[in-house]
Simulated scan of single mutants.
Amino acid sequence: MYYIIGFLATVMLIRFITNFYKYKRIQKLFKKYQEYLQTNALEFAQYKQEIISLLKDAGLKDFSIIHQESLGYGNFANMQVSGFDNLTNRRVDIVGSIRMRFNEAIGVFRKRFKESFNPIFWIDFIVKFPQYLMEFFGVLPEKVAVRIFLVIYWLLAILFGLKKFEILDYLMK
């Protein structure tokens, strides 16, 4: 029993530490981004891949920005460019979107490290564990097979829980 409690405490602590680190890191990188916008220091490009990685880790998807180029003689070429790839671009619409992504990521990591010690989060995690597993492996949760697997998981979990606490034996008498 002590091993299980120790394991759960370790998992909670690791989750807290990693998300707190990411929270502090994305805040620091956001300050560097704001400094870059004011000073145009080219060293900011060194952090681009780390920023993209943290934004993706927060669950934020890349976004598209419409770019228009003049071809001459009144003709224009319209194209969509990646927002993450244009992180160092200083266009007003791109800067606004990047700032929004930074703030969203800060909120995601703050939520994650705060819920690390929330028992409601862990109960929800246990109940939805098979669903998270299926999503991790890329299986769509809308498929019937996944739902059947979830129902079997919940029934087995209830059955083993009743057996463990000897409630099932009591009900069978």
Rank of each mutant, 00 (worst) to 15 (best):
F125Y: 13
F113Q: 03
P141K: 02
R99S: 12
L159E: 07
M134C: 02
R110P: 03
L140F: 11
K163T: 10
F109D: 01
Y132T: 10
P130K: 03
Y153I: 05
E104N: 13
G107C: 11
M100R: 06
F165R: 09
G138R: 03
V146R: 00
I120H: 00
V144D: 13
G107S: 13
F136M: 03
F102K: 03
E142P: 01
I158F: 15
V127P: 02
L159F: 15
F165M: 12
A145F: 14
P141G: 03
F117S: 07
Y170C: 08
F117H: 02
F125S: 06
W154I: 14
K163L: 13
F113P: 00
P119Y: 00
F160W: 15
F129N: 05
V144M: 12
I152E: 04
K163V: 12
I148S: 06
K114V: 08
E135W: 01
P119H: 00
V146K: 00
I126E: 11
P119F: 01
L162A: 11
N118D: 13
A157R: 05
G107L: 09
I167F: 15
A145P: 02
L159K: 09
W122S: 05
G161R: 11
V127A: 11
N103I: 13
A157W: 12
W122L: 05
E166L: 14
W122C: 05
K114Y: 10
W154S: 09
W122F: 08
P130V: 07
E115G: 01
R110I: 12
M100Y: 08
E166C: 04
